[in-house]
Design a protein around this nucleic acid. Structure first.
Lengths: 336, 336
DNA sequence: GAACATTGGGAAACCGGTTTCCTACATGTG
DNA sequence: CACATGTAGGAAACCGGTTTCCCAATGTTC
């Protein structure tokens, strides 16, 4: 039914081995034979079966991307670029949403191994025991993106989350804010934890005590920003500013503030994180910490591809890219 | 290096065939033997090699998802749910961003075939010649989502785009608007074309002539909404309302309106499409046409899985789901 | 107790590529 | 001219599963 390499070989009066060698240039073949083979390949419109090839070569041209969920403005943008980079190099992207569930993540890792994936990009928190164990025994190239591995067992690209949130808080402090909340991510994520540390250190450096009641830890989406805001902004002792773990959280928080009749930024300053496209379009524009998202994903792809090519000769790297503070309209100095 | 079915067979003193039969329950095996095999499988932590299995069975447990790009709030949500449904049924999702490029799409289709994917979900416009040709010769289950196939050669799930945009326009007309713009999608998409028709028909039904200068055709993202708005809203003869092809376009349009000092909805009504989460959180809340996104994706997955199970016995279906109009604050009646 | 059906399980072929190993021939060298 | 060296290309093994085909052992029926 389907055309195989043997069909081509037969028709060209050569052996399958020769056809394979012509197509992969894995061994020199005389010009005459090569041309004959290529002609037949053309005539029959032969495409080698990728599965058979995978089996023989123990590689699949498949790359697994593990993320909590593609349903996030930041991550979908990230994966979009990853996919493009991989496609350019003839790799196809397997989308693996872990839903922050370690069991699903384990299932996916095993499955990826069984499918001979050539590499994995992980955006699912920091190296966890099961990840380390897995990669110890299977030797599949892996890169962490958006999460730094302090043990240096894995390559990673990331910004300095500690410093980034430190800078966010400092910006507010320098603008006279004394009471600053944090709508952080779940602290089981190292990333969220690092940002929390940055926030705390900034407060400490400006001589302000840490008030746990101003700190929330939950998901990076708009709903949680809203919920947190609804809880915090009705309080008497509400802060004059809030650092958010994502722009979407910031937007949710703004929405909540407005429901209580608070004006942003006059009555409360709201700071975002990521600098998604919407941060610019929103009113007020969201003052935010920009992550170099395109750079992050391009470099993650590049590191992984290099690791695939070089295998055991590859030297693991930890890359840290620069973040920026983008000043827009959602924050202002405390007056009076 | 890796454990194979032959290792298991050896250790359990049976043939590989028996191990296969135990694991797949493809033929009865005595209780004693089965238990022995399972014990060894357990001991050696044996996982059958998915690639070898694919080769033998001509199936891969892989499903290709073709979309213009994952970098869209609507599509990423859609794919998120798809992936979840497929994962539940042991299928893994291959992400194929076509970037609206037919050549990339063709490449991906060929690649999917070579990888023995078990099915394909297409969100890339209506059946095009190359798609029809492809599926005629390869016989891979396929479902179109968000795009209806009028030729009925493919299964599809969709809303009635014509009616949806008709309803959007009618809502504005009933609220007294006489001059209504359209920020539509590229009309090479059947979907965008259908929406344009609905818009035109509504105008016609209310006795209003079609003014091409009020109609824009470009991408579904925030930037294009903004650009269109910047062009249109500075004109003397600007409309009192605009129908947008997505909520993001609406948000971009609102931004543009505000830059010209126009208040939404007092000076101009802006209508969205999709009802993404942000539509609710935005201020003003976006009045929009809700697509039942979860239903769409769940049903797309369901139809595809059924088609995979039933193969030639499967009867193609065209499902049309209901849309809704969600009234929020971005539109109001014309006064005076 | 003979004839037959049923069932468990092994050997080997198969899926469709790649690669090793080997042979036959052409070329270079003393 | 004899011999070493290099090279093109074929046969067959291999990747790791599944499945067909077959045989032996057991159960059933008259």
């Amino acid at each position: 039914m389907n055309i195989t390499i043997r069909d081509v070989a037969m028709r060209a009066n050569v052996s399958p081995a020769t056809v394979s060698r012509v197509l992969n240039q894995s061994k020199p073949v005389s010009k005459a034979v090569r041309e004959k083979v290529l002609k037949v390949v053309e005539e029959l419109n032969f495409n080698p079966n990728a599965v058979a090839r995978s089996l023989a070569m123990k590689e699949s041209k498949l790359i697994g991307v593990l993320i909590p969920g593609i349903d996030s403005v930041f991550l979908s943008k990230f994966v979009n670029i990853l996919e493009e980079e991989f496609f350019k190099h003839n790799y196809t992207t397997l989308l693996c949403n872990t839903r922050c569930d370690d069991d699903i993540e384990k299932d996916y890792l095993r499955l990826l191994k069984d499918k001979y994936v050539d590499g994995v990009v992980l955006m699912t928190s920091h190296p966890k025991p099961h990840q380390i164990e897995f990669f110890e025994q299977v030797d599949i190239p892996a890169v962490f993106a958006g999460h730094t591995d302090p043990t240096k067992q894995f390559s990673s690209v990331n910004i300095n989350n500690y410093q980034a949130m430190y800078d966010a808080a400092r910006y507010l402090l320098e603008n006279g804010h004394q009471r600053i909340g944090l709508f952080g991510g779940p602290f089981i994520y190292r990333q969220a934890m690092e940002r929390l540390s940055g926030y705390r250190q900034a407060l400490a450096d400006y001589g302000i005590g840490y008030d746990e009641s101003l700190v929330f830890a939950n998901d990076y989406d708009i709903e949680h920003g809203y919920e947190n805001g609804m809880k915090l902004f009705r309080r008497e002792d509400k802060p004059t500013a809030v650092c958010c773990v994502s722009d979407m959280v910031a937007i949710g928080a703004i929405k909540a503030a407005e429901e209580y009749g608070l004006r942003v930024p006059e009555d409360i300053s709201i700071m975002g994180f990521d600098d998604i496209r919407l941060a610019k379009a929103y009113r007020p524009g969201i003052t935010t910490i920009r992550q170099p998202i395109k750079e992050l994903s391009v470099q993650a792809a590049e590191m992984l591809l290099q690791q695939i090519r070089q295998k055991e000769n590859y030297i693991k790297e930890t890359r840290v890219l620069a973040h920026d503070i983008i000043v827009r309209g959602s924050c202002m100095a405390v007056t009076g």
